[in-house]
């Protein structure tokens, strides 16, 4: 593929870079004082500053998750299988896909469920017929209620968390960081990375929020200590 796109075949490359370089001969205007463009605190219309959350990181994570209507369960590590079984049963999940690297003890006891263990080798089409997916989680961000999936063996490929309607995500407390700024000290990008912060949603019609468009419409987070 793409042998016909050698750089030498692309005169636009040279042209664009030359235009950019000649444009940069003009120095940008000094951005000026950092006071300009800052909202006057206390003036009408400016947000009243809310003091930073003083909650513990895990509690903050839970609060933010609930704020966007994810279902949250908090258990000990040993309590994961029971929590998973409870969710599968209460959500009437009949078929399940799990990534091959996920701890088997977490889902072995779920009972009468059609199970697909995905090792990423087959085609992605077909997962839309499966009700639910269980994954682990490389990293979670408390301030934003974000689950970070980075293609690890217990997270699987992207398609499995996209097509089923229920996503059950197991988050170990040691994976939870406080804010977004720490994210890339925890995860790399050699695999695709997906940040999930709530069930899929749209506000495109009269700004009314509708939960669930294309991704999973139900997000269940099991926080395990």
């Amino acid at each position: 593929m793409a042998n016909n796109h050698l750089r030498s075949d692309q005169p636009s490359r040279t042209k664009i870079l030359n235009l950019v370089r000649s444009g940069l001969l003009n120095k940008a205007m000094d951005p000026g004082s950092s006071m300009a463009g800052v909202a006057t605190r206390g003036a009408p219309g400016t947000p009243l500053w809310i003091a930073g959350h003083d909650l513990e990181t895990v509690d903050l994570f839970e609060e933010v998750l609930k704020d966007y209507k994810a279902r949250v369960l908090r258990v000990d590590i040993e309590g994961i299988p029971a929590a998973v079984a409870e969710v599968i049963s209460s959500c009437h999940i009949k078929s399940l896909v799990v990534p091959s690297g996920l701890d088997r003890t977490w889902y072995e006891g779920v009972g009468q469920v059609q199970l697909v263990v995905d090792d990423g080798s087959g085609p992605a089409v077909g997962f839309e017929k499966i009700d639910g997916v269980i994954t682990g989680c490389s990293c979670a961000i408390a301030e934003t209620g974000t689950l970070v999936l980075s293609g690890r063996p217990d997270e699987g490929r992207r398609a499995i968390t996209l097509l089923p309607d229920f996503h059950i995500c197991i988050v170990k407390t040691e994976a939870i960081i406080r804010g977004v700024s720490e994210l890339f000290s925890r995860i790399g990008v050699s695999n695709p990375v997906t940040l999930i912060s709530g069930p899929s949603a749209t506000s495109d019609i009269e700004l009314k929020r509708v939960e669930g468009v294309h991704g999973p419409r139900n997000l269940i987070v099991v926080i395990a200590t």
Binding site: E143, V189, T194, L195, I196, S197
Partner: peptide
Amino acid sequence: GERMNPYTSLWS
């Protein structure tokens, strides 16, 4: 006006 949008995709 969200703390984070529901989905962010990164690929290399």
